[in-house]
């Protein structure tokens, strides 16, 4: 029955082969990374760590599978062969415990700088937050502070599932949740951060290419989780961003039905004067 070993060998070869193939097919590999040439380039950092871990685990996988197949080939079951009692091999056990331990400790220390850059609050951009993003079942509510730069005032811009930023600018976002756990996930920027009810969590990133990217929820948050999809729009210039902001604010401040023009000031004057005596009759307690 030594031919079983070939099955294990072929399976291992297929696994390795699928990874090798995937690297050359953009539809199989990770999404196009758009945080590579920007100042913060978190995407490049994360991909570098991912590839390192993949290389180490890949090498270990190949060696382990070769050893397994070799052992199966070398020592097949045969009639009359007596099992041999072994108490183990201390040296061997120490070796195969120490090697993974060293690798894990190395990875733990090696990634610390990147983790700090991406997650430590002390490293966040010193600028004011560009927007508040609040997860709710099942939308991303985005709030820009408006002209006065303060959240919670009447000139705030509220948009839904629609985050706009400028290319190469470090963006700081205040992430919140209204109901349950959500996760703010920008796959093309390799950024993922849970949104926790009751907490305001800073998130910062930048993007090197203008375009429209996905903003999805990566934490199962209810039956509508799959609908919780927004768009991240990256503008080429600040002017383009301002233009969008102006038009979005105009839309939000709309005071007449679409297509209708506001009655001009002349026409509304009599109405205003008519109100004055009426409101003066109001008795106030």
């Amino acid at each position: 029955m030594r031919y079983w070993s070939l099955l294990f060998l072929v399976t291992a070869a297929l696994c390795v082969g699928s990874f090798v193939y995937a690297m050359f097919d953009p539809n199989w590999w990770l999404l196009h990374n758009v945080s590579v040439r920007s100042p913060l380039h978190f995407g490049a950092e994360i991909d570098r760590l991912t590839m390192l871990v993949l290389a180490i685990t890949g090498a270990v996988f190949v060696l382990t599978m070769l050893a397994l197949s070799w052992a199966l080939w070398k020592y097949p079951a045969s009639p009359g062969r007596v099992a041999q009692y072994s108490h183990g091999n201390h040296k061997l056990e120490i070796v195969w415990t120490l090697i993974p331990a060293v690798i894990l400790v190395f990875l733990a220390f090696y990634q610390m700088g990147s983790w700090a850059d991406i997650k430590f609050r002390s490293r966040r951009p010193k600028s004011a937050p560009l927007a508040q993003v609040t997860g709710r079942q099942f939308n991303w509510l985005v709030r820009y502070p408006g002209v006065d730069g303060k959240f919670g005032t009447t000139d705030d811009l509220h948009v839904i599932n629609n985050l706009h930023i400028v290319k190469d600018q470090a963006v700081l976002i205040d992430l919140k949740s209204q109901d349950v756990l959500h996760s703010f996930f920008l796959p093309q920027i390799r950024l993922k951060q849970d949104a926790v009810p009751g907490m305001t969590i800073p998130v910062w990133f930048d993007v090197d290419t203008p375009g429209t990217y996905e903003l999805v929820c990566a934490e199962l948050c209810g039956w509508g989780h799959y609908k919780m999809r927004g768009l991240l729009t990256v503008h080429e210039t600040q002017a383009e961003f301002n233009e969008w902001m102006t038009s979005a604010l105009a839309e939000q401040n709309q005071t007449q039905p679409a297509g209708a023009t506001a009655p001009d000031a002349q026409a509304s004057d009599p109405a205003t004067t008519a109100t004055d005596p009426a409101s003066s009759t109001v008795e106030r307690s």
């Binding site: 079942q137 099942f138 939308n139 509510l141 839904i160 599932n161 629609n162 609908k227 999809r229 768009l231």
Partner: peptide
């Protein structure tokens, strides 16, 4: 497109 805030009706603009 905007959904209904304060209810479970979500926005379908990106879907």
């Amino acid at each position: 497109l905007d959904g209904i805030d304060n209810s479970s009706m979500s926005s379908f603009a990106a879907v």
